[in-house]
Every structure is written in C-alpha cells, then in structure tokens.
C-alpha cells in the first residue's frame, strides 16, 4: 500500500475496488489504483462514471468467476452446510422465543446463544470438537433454565413419556441438523464470512421484535408457528431472505441453494410433531392438512429458488462454452 496520504479520489476508488474478491484485491488493487490515479485529471475528486461502472462490473464478474472455479462438489457442500446452519439458527431462536418471557432466564438465553455460536463456529471455522462441546453444554443448560422458569420442562410435564417424546420431536430435528453440520463442515472449505449476514437474520429479527412494540398479530390468530419464529415474523423473514439471496445470485448461487434447503428441512421438520400427534392421539390424518397453506408457499419459494439457480448455472455454462469456442 502507498505511504502517501490518501486523496479523496483514492479513497473513493478504493471503495469501488471492494467489488473485487479480497484475494484479487490483494494482488491487483494497488496497481489498478495507480493506473486510475494516473489517468485522472488534476483536481479530480470522483472516479469517472465510466471507470466506476467498469470497476463494479469487472469486480462482480471476478467474484462470479472465482465462485465458479470452486467446483460443483465443494459448492454443494458449502450450500448444504449453510442451509443447515440457517435452519438451526432459526430453530434455536424459535425455541428461545417459544418460552415466554424471552430473556428473563439467563440459563435459557445462554443455551440459545451457545447453540447459535456453535452453528456459526461449525460452518465458518470448522472446529468440530469445540462445536460438539458447546452444543453439549447448551443441551445441558436448556432444560435447567426451562425448569427454573417453570415453562415447558416442568417436572410433571416431563414425567409423562408422551409429552417428552413430543419435545424430542420439536428439538430433535435441529440437533440432528447440527450434527449433520458438524459432519459436513471442513476447515479447508469454509464459506464466505458475508453469508453470516443471512445466518444472523433470524436472531436479528427476534432482537428487533424485542425492541420494537409488538403489534400482537399472533395473539389475534392464537397461533404460534413452530417454524420459523412467530406467525407474523414469517413473511418478513422470508421476504428479507429472498431479496438478499436474489441479490447474491449475481455473483453466487450457493446462498440461494442453502436457503432453499433450510426452507425444505424446516417445513419437513415441522410435520414430525404433527405426525407424532396423529400416531399417539389416534387423531385423524386430516390434522396434517388443517394447519395452513404456509407449507405450500414456503416449498414453492424453495422450488423457485432452486429453479432460478439452475437456470443461471445453465446460462453461465453455455456462455463460458461460447467464450471458449
């Protein structure tokens, strides 16, 4: 990096260069900056519109090319790991928010925070032993916290085998997903840190809801969905996830695949307790279809994301073949 004081033009050009992948910037940024500054007029404070557009376009193309070079196997593993991480983070937040009042029991809050930390650590660091230890601590802490707060895990409630097994159906899928995540992740194949933005969305949404006044819609409907968060949060979360992943498709198809996977896993996991209720209570099978039509909307969204991703991959493959020809 130059030792001369940075001018406004240089600072603004450096900002535009952030469109390129970090490893490309490390190699080329200073050289490109030198060329750009040499080509500038005396007193020029802003990069020209032509230069700005070319840097942004070339940077985005460089990112897309880097992601394509990863290969299908690694890309799918990273997408799957990210999808499971998103599902686990949503489920952990949901479990925490299911037991009111949220945040009043330090042990319970700590357990959910530990599960979120384990998820992040599993995907973005690949430290399997640390992740397994943190998960075990979280699992041990959570019932203690719930028992103290008098919700969910009170002793009479748990003494009946039926309800205990229903709880296992609620908490089992996220824990299984976390175990799959630990098996999937490798330190050499860590996904970009920018995906953390998506993974932290559910907990951020919950945090925002705690800070903002509650419109109370879920009380009107009398329903609390098991996935993800409460009924009135679902459209907000899905809209944000869809918009962000659509933006990401310009350079990277992996987040869209991951989000699609998390939606499918989340919706299928939602039906496990329902199936158990049907089996144990000998309830009519129609119970499975009386919840609402959310499952069709969510699975439709997941299918649309996968279809868009496949279309983009097909077009890029065709374009690269044409270029090579």
């Amino acid at each position: 990096m130059s030792t001369l004081p940075a001018t406004r033009l240089e600072r603004r050009a450096r900002l535009l260069l952030r469109a390129y992948p970090p490893e490309y910037r490390a190699e080329r940024a200073e050289e490109m900056l030198g060329t750009l500054l040499e080509a500038a007029q005396p007193g020029q404070e802003w990069p020209s519109a032509r230069d700005a557009w070319s840097l942004l376009r070339s940077g985005v193309n460089a990112r897309a090319a880097r992601n394509r070079r990863l290969g299908l196997r690694i890309s799918l593993r990273q997408a799957a790991a990210f999808g499971l991480a998103l599902y686990v983070s949503v489920a952990a937040v949901n479990v925490g928010s299911e037991v009111p009042p949220w945040g009043t029991d330090p042990a319970q809050t700590l357990a959910v925070a530990l599960l979120l930390a384990a998820t992040v650590l599993a995907v973005w660091t690949g430290y399997r032993a640390a992740v397994a230890t943190i998960t075990a601590i979280a699992i041990a802490i959570f019932p203690y916290g719930s028992y103290r707060s008098g919700h969910g895990f009170s002793l009479p409630y748990h003494l009946t085998a039926r309800m205990a097994s229903v709880d296992a159906a609620y908490f089992g899928p996220p824990l299984l997903a976390l175990l799959a995540l630990i098996a999937l992740t490798q330190r050499s194949e860590r996904p970009p840190r920018s995906w953390l933005l998506l993974a932290c969305l559910p907990s951020s949404l919950l945090g925002a809801r705690q800070l903002l006044p509650d419109p109370g819609w879920h009380r009107l409907s009398g329903l609390v969905t098991l996935y993800p968060l409460r009924t009135n949060d679902l459209p907000v979360l899905l809209t944000l996830l869809t918009l962000l992943t659509l933006g990401w498709l310009v350079t990277d198809t992996r987040p869209a695949l991951g989000v699609a996977l998390s939606l499918v896993v989340g919706q299928l996991a939602l039906y496990i307790p329902a199936i158990q209720e049907v089996v144990m209570d000998r309830a009519p099978i129609v119970l499975l279809w009386t919840w609402d039509t959310t499952i069709f909307k969510v699975l439709g969204l997941a299918a649309a994301m996968v279809a868009t991703t496949l279309l983009i991959l097909h077009r890029r493959t065709r374009a690269s073949r044409a270029t090579a020809g």
Binding site: M32, T35, D51, W53, S54, L55, L56, R57, S58, N61
Partner: peptide, 10 residues
C-alpha cells in the same frame, strides 16, 4: 477506444 481501468485489467 478509451479503455476504462476495470476493462483494461479484465
């Protein structure tokens, strides 16, 4: 032909 910086390095 006035090459922009991004175009040149691409």
């Amino acid at each position: 032909v006035r090459l922009a910086t991004g175009t040149l390095y691409t």
